[in-house]
Simulated assay, not measured.
Amino acid sequence: MKIARFPFLALILLTSASCQPKNTPTKSVLVEKELVEHVQINPEELQKYETAYFASGCFWCVEAVFESVKGVKEVYSGYAGGTEVNPTYEQVAYGRTRHAEAVEVYYDPELISFTQLVQVFFGSHDPTSLNRQGPDRGAQYRSIAFYENDAQKKVITDYVLLLESKNVYDLPIVTEVKEFDTFYKAEEYHQDFEKRNPNNSYIRNVSVPRLNRFKENFKSYLKEEAH
Rank of each mutant, 00 (worst) to 15 (best):
L211D: 01
N200L: 01
D192H: 03
R213C: 07
F193H: 06
S207V: 13
Y202A: 06
N200M: 03
K219E: 08
Y202C: 08
L211I: 13
R204D: 05
E216H: 14
N200R: 04
R196K: 15
Y189L: 13
F193S: 04
Y202D: 03
N205W: 00
S207G: 11
V206W: 01
N199K: 14
E188Y: 06
A226Q: 14
R196V: 09
E187A: 00
R196T: 12
D192M: 04
K195S: 11
E216Y: 11
S201E: 13
N212E: 05
S220F: 07
N199E: 12
E187F: 03
K215D: 03
R204I: 12
V208D: 11
N217V: 03
K215H: 01
H190V: 08
E224R: 15
E224S: 15
F193C: 03
N199G: 00
K223S: 15
N200P: 00
K219R: 14
I203G: 11
R213L: 10
D192T: 02
K219I: 08
N217R: 05
S220C: 09
N205T: 02
E225Q: 13
Y221I: 08
R210Q: 04
Y221E: 07
K215S: 04
E225L: 05
E188N: 07
N205P: 01
E188V: 06
A226T: 13
S201A: 14
E224K: 15
F218A: 02
P209T: 02
F214Y: 02
N217M: 05
N217F: 05
E187D: 05
Y202M: 06
S207H: 06
A226Y: 06
Y202R: 12
E188M: 05
F218K: 03
K215W: 00
D192P: 01
N212Q: 06
P198V: 13
N212V: 00
A226V: 11
N212D: 06
F214M: 04
L211Q: 12
P209R: 00
L222F: 08
Y202K: 10
F214G: 02
L211K: 14
H190E: 12
Q191H: 07
H190M: 12
L222T: 03
K219W: 09
R204T: 15
D192K: 03
N199M: 13
P198K: 08
N212A: 01
Y221R: 05
Y189F: 15
P198R: 09
K219F: 07
I203M: 13
K219N: 01
A226P: 08
K195C: 07
K223L: 15
E224T: 15
K215F: 01
Y221N: 06
K215Y: 00
L222R: 01
P198Q: 09
E225G: 04
S201T: 10
R210M: 08
R210L: 02
L211A: 08
A226K: 09
E187W: 03
E216C: 11
L211T: 09
N197R: 03
F214L: 01
E187V: 00
Y189C: 11
R196M: 03
S207M: 08
D192I: 02
K195R: 15
Q191D: 08
D192Q: 01
E224Q: 15
A226M: 12
F193V: 03
N197Y: 00
Y221M: 10
K215R: 07
E216F: 12
A226N: 14
N212I: 03
R210T: 02
I203C: 14
R213P: 04
N205L: 06
E188W: 07
F218R: 05
E224D: 15
S201M: 13
E224V: 14
E194N: 08
R213G: 03
F214A: 11
